[in-house]
C-alpha cells in the first residue's frame, strides 16, 4: 500500500513520516513518564489504577417508569479484552445545573446497575425538552473515577390493539413531552412493532408515523402461549433522541400452542418401554424360567426319593 503511493508521490510519504514520528512520540512519552515515576522511589498506586468505562442508558418502560442502566466495564488495552465489573456502587443524578440525586445501585456480574424511577417523577428539562441523566462512580483503590451521561427527550407511546373490520390492527400514537408538558406528535419517524419472545423481541413490522399516528396489520399465523396470548410491543431501541422507549400490551391474537403431549409416553427412548417389548420379554422369560423351575422341582423330587430308598 505504502509502496504504491511512494511511486506516485514523495509528498504522501513525507506526510506519513511526520505522522509516524508524531505517533511514536505519543506512544513513548507516557511510557517514559511512567518509568520516571517508577524510578522516583515510591510506586504510586494512582499510576496503576484502572480507568473503567461507565456507559449510561435509559429505558422508559411500558408502565411509564423509567430505568437508568449503567454498564460498568474495563477494557484491557493490551489484550483488547473487555471485563464487566460487578459489586460497584453507582450513583445516579438528573438535571443540568442543580443535580438531583436519584439514588445508588450496585452492579451485577454483567456490570449492570439499574435504577428504577417512578412513573410520576417530574424530571427537569431544558428548553429543548431534553432530560440530562448522569451516573457517577467515585473511584477506589483500584479503579479511577468514572461517569456517564445521557440526554433524552421524554416520549409517550399509546398502543391500541383492536380488530377493525375483522383485521387485527396495531395502532400507535407517539408524542414527545417537552418542557412544561408541551406535547408534540412525532412525525416521519419509523417505529418497529414486536412481539415478546423468550430470549428477545420478534419484529413483526414497521409503522411510519404521520402526525404521531400509525397502524399495522397483525400477522395471522403467529404462535402465542397455550391460550394464544402474545405480548405486542411498540418500541424505540436506543434511539439517539429518546433512548429506549416501549409500550406493551397482551392480547390473545396468537395461535394457541400445545406442546405437552408432543412425545409419546412409551417409546424407545422414554423411561417406560413400549408395551410390545414388555410383553415379548415377559413371554420369553416366563417360558424359559418356567422350564428351569420345573427342572429344579424334578431334582428336588429326586433328592426326596433318596430317603424312600434308604
Amino acid at each position: 500500500m505504502i509502496r504504491m503511493k511512494k511511486k506516485k508521490t514523495n509528498h504522501i510519504l513525507n506526510i506519513f513520516k511526520t505522522v509516524f514520528i508524531a505517533l511514536m512520540i505519543l506512544l513513548f512519552v507516557p511510557e517514559i513518564f511512567i518509568h520516571a515515576q517508577d524510578g522516583a522511589d515510591s510506586v504510586s498506586a494512582k499510576a496503576e489504577k484502572i480507568s473503567p468505562n461507565l456507559k449510561l442508558l435509559t429505558t422508559k418502560n411500558s408502565d411509564e417508569t423509567r430505568s437508568l442502566i449503567a454498564v460498568f466495564s474495563y477494557k484491557d488495552s493490551e489484550t483488547k479484552q473487555s471485563f464487566d465489573i460487578k459489586d460497584v456502587t453507582i450513583t445516579f443524578f438528573v438535571g443540568t445545573d442543580s443535580l438531583i440525586n436519584l439514588g445508588t445501585a450496585t452492579t451485577d456480574e454483567k456490570g449492570k446497575a439499574i435504577c428504577s424511577i417512578k412513573s410520576n417523577f417530574d424530571f427537569p428539562k431544558n428548553e429543548e425538552g431534553f432530560i440530562h441523566f448522569t451516573a457517577e462512580f467515585k473511584g477506589n483503590d483500584v479503579l479511577e473515577d468514572a461517569s456517564g451521561e445521557v440526554d433524552v427527550k421524554d416520549l409517550s407511546i399509546s398502543l391500541t390493539l383492536e380488530e377493525i373490520d375483522s383485521v387485527r390492527t396495531v395502532s400507535v400514537k407517539v408524542e414527545q413531552i417537552l418542557a412544561n408538558n408541551v406535547r408534540v406528535p412525532l412525525n416521519e419517524v419509523d417505529m418497529q412493532i414486536f412481539v415478546g419472545r423468550m430470549f428477545s423481541h420478534l419484529p413483526i413490522g414497521t409503522i411510519s408515523l404521520a402526525e404521531g399516528i400509525g397502524t399495522l396489520e397483525f400477522p395471522v399465523n403467529l404462535p402465542g402461549d397455550t391460550a394464544g396470548n402474545v405480548i405486542v410491543i411498540a418500541k424505540f431501541e436506543e434511539h439517539e433522541e429518546f433512548g429506549t422507549v416501549l409500550k406493551s400490551d397482551t392480547i390473545a391474537w396468537g395461535i394457541k400452542t400445545m406442546h405437552f403431549n408432543a412425545y409419546s409416553p412409551r417409546s424407545l427412548w422414554t423411561q417406560v418401554a413400549p408395551v410390545w417389548m414388555i410383553v415379548t420379554l415377559s413371554i420369553m422369560l416366563l417360558g424359559v424360567w418356567g422350564h428351569y423351575i420345573y427342572v429344579i422341582i424334578q431334582l428336588i423330587l429326586l433328592k426326596k426319593g433318596e430317603k424312600k430308598i434308604a
Partner: peptide, 10 residues
C-alpha cells in the same frame, strides 16, 4: 449326587 441310584424312575 442327590441320592441317585440309577433306578428307572430316577
Amino acid at each position: 449326587a442327590l441320592g441317585y441310584q440309577e433306578t428307572p424312575w430316577q
